[in-house]
Amino acid sequence: MSYVTVEKLSKSFKGNKIIDNLDFTIEKGEFVTLLGPSGCGKSTLLRCIAGLEQIDGGEICIDGKEVSRLGPRDRGIGMVFQSYALFPNMTVRENIGFGLKMKRVNERERREKVDAMMELVDIADKAEARIQEISGGQQQRVALARALAVEPKILLLDEPLSALDAKIRKSLRLQLRNIQKQLKITTVFVTHDQEEALTMSDRIFVFDKGRISQMGTPADIYSLPQNEFVAGFIGNYNMLTSDDVEEISGARLEGELFAIRPEVISVYGEAPPEKGGVLHLRGIVEDTVVLGSILRCYLDVKNRKIVADMLNREENYFEKGEEVQLLISQKEISRIR
């Protein structure tokens, strides 16, 4: 029996189906990310699990208990909101201790617990500061500590990093994942950022229009997209039909639609080495963009646009308008249809 089971969950707003007959399970201690574009229903699903939205149909079980008719305070859920929703009238310590106070935990025990939480998220030096006096990253950590202090069964994170700048976001990402592993707490994380999803999760559920389009490990999601939506949302796949492939390479592949990741395309200025099992193309460099350690090369192959990623090295720089040859290993081509 899985720790969290969702069956046939539906939710509509004013006749619009936001979540459509959803089924999934989450194991204890797992870090699951709901990934999808804005408006795909991922935040609504989180709010349904938390009990902040009434569901129209279906069941939500947490730890073997049906909770879908219970109020938010009876579900044993900790949640971090996108805007944190910290209490401005309280200090950091009071915010973190609020849940314990409501649970009537005695003063001494509460103090110990709050101290431990502040230690965990590294905010102990700001214990007596008010919320307005600490930075966004610190607020985010307070919100996390506040949610964890009551020892919830599940931790729900609703785009908790999206309001922060890139550098803090990256370090908090690691910190968040480490804390999650340390406490082994079952976590559902909502994001629209594929990099965040790929680096943090045990499993990713890719959301599209209220349905799960694909679920799997980050590696699976990234390299084996099962449908057009996932291929279009993750990475910068080159999407080609079988006719396209035949026209540019002369080879006929089995299937209708294929996704080719930019990093599996090798670009050569002179004749490439002879190999079996590869597609051999000729193209013209249209533009090259430096993305830090990666060079992204935009190519024109018989009037089709192909994107190839290479490591940022001297030998990989090609002039605009230069004719180049491309090799694509057939094993690396994902068949979508």
Partner: peptide, 17 residues
């Protein structure tokens, strides 16, 4: 101004009535 709805939700999730 204080986004009362979200604050209520946060408080309720933290066991407050």
């Amino acid at each position: 101004t204080i986004d009362a709805r979200q604050l209520m939700e946060a408080a309720e999730l933290l066991n407050a009535t």
